[in-house]
Design a protein around this nucleic acid. Structure first.
Lengths: 221, 221
DNA sequence: ATATTTTTTTTGACTTGCCTAAAAATTTAT
DNA sequence: ATAAATTTTTAGGCAAGTCAAAAAAAATAT
């Protein structure tokens, strides 16, 4: 049985590897876990003893098959709970992360399989992130960042890159929730901001920061 | 913020006080928590420093108002999750205790209020135990042990005194689930066993052990 | 190629929660 | 009222997880 702390380290390492590649550095883990490099070195040794990751001194870590499985199951649990919180309990998409962060550590595998069935085997969470199946596999959706669209193109909102409540609340306010249609009129060279139309509303301007944190599925104009 | 361990101590102390009265002895806590008296003394000091209980050396402990509130809220959370697990996810009444034991430590008060609403503000859990409201109050049902019924009387099953899976499974098999009607024909002097009829079935015999662990609401014969 | 900066590890120490063994206090029995 | 038994506390120690400070290794700059 792994402690909650050990589970959190594995999940962080998994996510860092996903975005930055392997090997995963001590410092990057420390930054993500909001702790010190010394603590990370300590934990890495323990997880290596348990064969959840491979560790070469001074050269970072890499999850083993087993460590990877733990991480993806945590992600599965996290995302299923997020679906429960929004779809069944009526939470907003910007409220569910912290609660799911706790719920993902509940141990019963039976609970998760029943929850999955109860929710109708959802394949994406409230932020559009894919939910791994019981074997850790998930489907990858065809999506691009809004900032990658060309003027004249349109897309359907499929996910976010920044999961912060502030960003999610702003998107909600703009009507840019999952499934919303957005079409790009033109880009402003001066600041890379975009002139867009959301769901056939009035044209408006979105910053490049927003554009670089929103995923869309390109669709016909 | 309290640790899961601290919360579990408070809940244990609350339950011991409920059944044995106050003050609660170090040894009784050690027995319930499956740990040693030395560990209990240790923890008691910490909880006393946090003003969750009053502690007089060698003379046991008593929860403060604040400690009591923590304990009843834990019980509230535990029982609400049990309702969720049986009513929504389809678990049997003998399967839910251990999972709820983990879920009760999830911290969000908002989550519990929404869960309560989602479940329709249930007042009793799957074992017939009352669910405290947000203020820690609950309604007490008029019930007696089956062993206290007199021959000729009947009752409706309202709860159990022994929550072990073995007992719950046996009751299920007998058809003695919540709401079932049972009527007492006669008591056997030799071993205090009972001759009963469950839901108008064939007469059968129940041990005094069963009778002392099953609550019924007396009803007309 | 050497010096400087950055990253990582080691060291020593702290807290929480647990244990065993021994000592102290209380309760029970005579 | 004293002895015996029980309960509780103290003392000392261990493992997990944390930190700051110092040392070591690696990466970068000149």
């Amino acid at each position: 049985m792994l402690s909650i702390t050990e589970e959190n380290y594995l999940k962080s390492i998994y996510k860092i590897a996903e975005s930055d590649g392997i090997p995963v550095s001590t410092n990057s883990v420390a930054a993500r876990m909001q702790t010190t490099a010394a603590s990370v070195t300590d934990m890495i040794k323990r997880l290596s003893d348990k064969e959840l990751l491979e560790y070469e001194k001074y050269h970072g870590v890499q999850l083993t098959e087993q460590g990877s499985r733990v991480a993806t199951q945590l992600i599965r649990k996290h995302r299923l709970w997020e679906v429960f919180l929004t779809d069944q309990l009526g939470f907003r998409w910007d409220e569910v992360h912290d609660i799911a962060e706790e719920l993902e550590h509940i141990q019963s595998p039976q609970l998760i399989e029943r929850l999955d069935r109860f929710l109708g085997h959802p394949r994406f969470d409230p932020h559009g992130d894919p939910i791994p199946d019981a074997n850790g596999h998930w489907e990858h959706r065809q999506q691009v960042l809004l900032s990658e669209l060309l003027p004249g193109q349109a897309g359907i909102v499929t996910g976010v890159n920044d999961h912060s409540p502030a960003f999610l609340q702003y998107l909600q306010q703009l009507g840019l929730t999952l499934g919303a249609r957005i079409s790009l009129q033109e880009t402003v060279a001066y600041d890379q901001s975009l002139q867009v139309v959301i769901e056939y509303g009035a044209p408006q301007n979105l910053s490049d920061k927003v554009a670089r944190n929103l995923y869309v599925h390109p669709s016909a104009e």
